[in-house]
């Protein structure tokens, strides 16, 4: 078992919380893990990413080589596309579709959607909307984590336990919110996958 994941988003969107949950679940599942992240200046509203590697054998490099990632998990749609050079030929893109616009030259909605829809293996989720339905749009990162669970190689129950542990000190309401968000994302991804397998794209 070996899963290489690129986590992507904008500073402040909570990708390090996603990484913390996966890390916890991986250690609990007795997997080897390396997770490289970016701190410092780029966190100020800039593009941020993390390389997360899970394996049942020791992991060498802290960085994922280009063309080797199994999953791009992004909390922001343009940021998902930024890291396509890292994605392997049969890798999945799991992304939030809600843009985070803090620059003047952000691409227009039509071209952005076209690029996302052109991806062969994709899970597209309006995570902000689903998180709001769970009670708070700030849980969008956990919705996205849930949507990526089918591709991680870790059982959803293990991930839920990790969410409970990570958010424990923030109180029961926060635990429930984030667990619900996780399952909301997970269910959405499974629905999209079964729809796709029932109606495979024409090739």
């Amino acid at each position: 078992m070996k899963t290489d994941i690129i986590l992507a988003g904008v500073g402040g969107q909570g990708i390090l919380s996603i990484a913390a949950v996966i890390g916890w679940a991986a250690i609990d599942s007795r997997l080897y893990i390396k997770q490289a992240e970016i701190h410092g200046m780029s966190q100020r509203g800039g593009a941020v990413y993390s390389h997360l590697r899970l394996s049942d054998a020791p992991v060498a490099s802290d960085l994922i080589p280009t063309g080797k990632a199994n999953v791009i998990l992004s909390v922001e749609p343009m940021e998902a596309l930024r890291y396509l050079p890292y994605l392997s030929g049969n890798g999945w893109v799991v992304t939030n579709t809600r843009p985070f616009v803090n620059i003047d030259n952000y691409p227009d909605a039509v071209s952005l959607t076209a690029q996302l829809e052109a991806l062969d293996k994709r899970i597209l989720v309006n995570a902000d909307e689903l998180a709001t339905r769970c009670g708070n749009s700030k849980a969008a990162n956990m919705v996205m984590l849930g949507a990526a669970v089918p591709f991680l190689g870790i059982d959803v129950g293990q991930v839920e336990t990790a969410v409970r542990n990570i958010f424990e000190r923030k109180g029961n309401a926060m635990v429930d919110l984030n667990v619900n968000a996780l399952h909301e994302g997970y269910t959405t991804a499974q629905q999209q996958m079964s729809l796709r397998s029932a109606n495979p794209p024409a090739s």
């Binding site: 100020r44 509203g45 800039g46 080589p65 050079p85 030259n105 691409p107």
Partner: peptide, 20 residues
Amino acid sequence: AKPADRPAPAIVVPRPPALC
């Protein structure tokens, strides 16, 4: 040997850090 290039689409623009 390196894997086949899979470039990011041209619509992707830099997102530099900014003051909060």
